[in-house]
C-alpha cells in the first residue's frame, strides 16, 4: 500500500515539477479562462441579465473548457518527449500512474478554478456566500472532472484528431456532473443553506467515485501497447 502511494506521489511530483518549470499548461488554461471571461462580459447584456443569476453556469463552462485544454496536453507532453514509454516500462503500476496523473491534473484545474472564481468575481462584481461549502462542492466536482478527463485525455492523445475528440467524448459523460456542479455552486453563491444542496453534493461525490474507480481499473487498457 505504501509502495503504491509512493508511486502515486512520484508521478504527482514529477508532473507538477514539469509544469512548474515549463508553465505550458497553466499559462494556456489560465489565459484561456480569463479571455473567456472577457468574451462573456461582452456576450451578455448586463442591463438585461443579472450576472449573479447566470454566473454559476458561465463559471463552470469556463472551467470545463479550460480543463479540456489542459487534459488534452497532459499526455501529449509525455508522448512528445518520449517519456510515456519510460514510465510504462518502469515498475510504477498503471493504476498509480493514472491516480498520479489525475491528482496532478486536479491540482492544475483547482489553480485555474481559483483564478476563474477571482476573475469572475471581479468582472461581474460577484460575492461568494457560503464559502466553505462552495469549496467542498467545487473540489468534489473537480475530482470527477479530473478523473474522467485524465482517462479520456490518455485516449485522445493516441487519436489522430486528438484535440477535437476529447470534448466530444468527455462532454456527454460530464453534462450530468455539470448539472449538479452548477446547481450547488449557484445556490451556495446565492447564500442558500447548505442543506439545500446536500443531494447535489452526494451526486457529485457519486460521479467522482465512479470516474476515479473506472479510470483506475480501465487505464491499463488505454496505455497498453
Amino acid at each position: 500500500m505504501t509502495a503504491y502511494l509512493n508511486q502515486v506521489r512520484i508521478i504527482v511530483w514529477r508532473d507538477l515539477t514539469v509544469e512548474l518549470r515549463s508553465r505550458e499548461r497553466i499559462a494556456a488554461m489560465g489565459g484561456f479562462a480569463v479571455l473567456v471571461a472577457v468574451l462573456i462580459y461582452y456576450a451578455i447584456d448586463l442591463t438585461i441579465v443579472r450576472p449573479r443569476d447566470v454566473a454559476a453556469g458561465l463559471i463552470w463552462m469556463t472551467i470545463l473548457f479550460s480543463g479540456m485544454l489542459g487534459f488534452g496536453r497532459a499526455f501529449a507532453m509525455d508522448l512528445e518527449q518520449d517519456q510515456l514509454q519510460g514510465i510504462l516500462l518502469s515498475p510504477i503500476s498503471r493504476g498509480a500512474f493514472y491516480l498520479g496523473k489525475t491528482i496532478a491534473n486536479f491540482a492544475l484545474l483547482t489553480a485555474v478554478e481559483a483564478l476563474v472564481f477571482t476573475v469572475f468575481g471581479g468582472f461581474f462584481n460577484l460575492s461568494y456566500g457560503g464559502t466553505a461549502w462552495l469549496i467542498v462542492a467545487v473540489v468534489v466536482a473537480t475530482a470527477g472532472v479530473a478523473g474522467l478527463g485524465t482517462l479520456l485525455g490518455a485516449i485522445a492523445v493516441h487519436t489522430r484528431p486528438s484535440d477535437s475528440i476529447l470534448p466530444l467524448l468527455a462532454f456527454p459523460l460530464l453534462i450530468p456532473l455539470v448539472i449538479h456542479a452548477v446547481m450547488a455552486t449557484g445556490r451556495l453563491m446565492a447564500g442558500r443553506p447548505p442543506a439545500e444542496v446536500g443531494g447535489n453534493l452526494r451526486m457529485l461525490a457519486a460521479f467522482a467515485i465512479l470516474f476515479l474507480a473506472a479510470g483506475t481499473v480501465l487505464f491499463r487498457y488505454v496505455v497498453e501497447e
Binding site: 493516441h158 467524448l169 450530468p176 449538479h180 457519486a206 465512479l210 473506472a214 480501465l218 487498457y221 488505454v222
Partner: peptide
C-alpha cells in the same frame, strides 16, 4: 480497446445520467 473503455464508461454513466436529469 479505446472504444471498449468508452462502451463500459457509457453504461456505468447511464444510471447517474438518468438520476441527474430527472433531478
Amino acid at each position: 480497446r479505446f472504444a471498449a473503455v468508452l462502451g463500459i464508461l457509457g453504461i456505468l454513466d447511464i444510471p447517474l445520467i438518468h438520476l441527474s436529469v430527472t433531478w
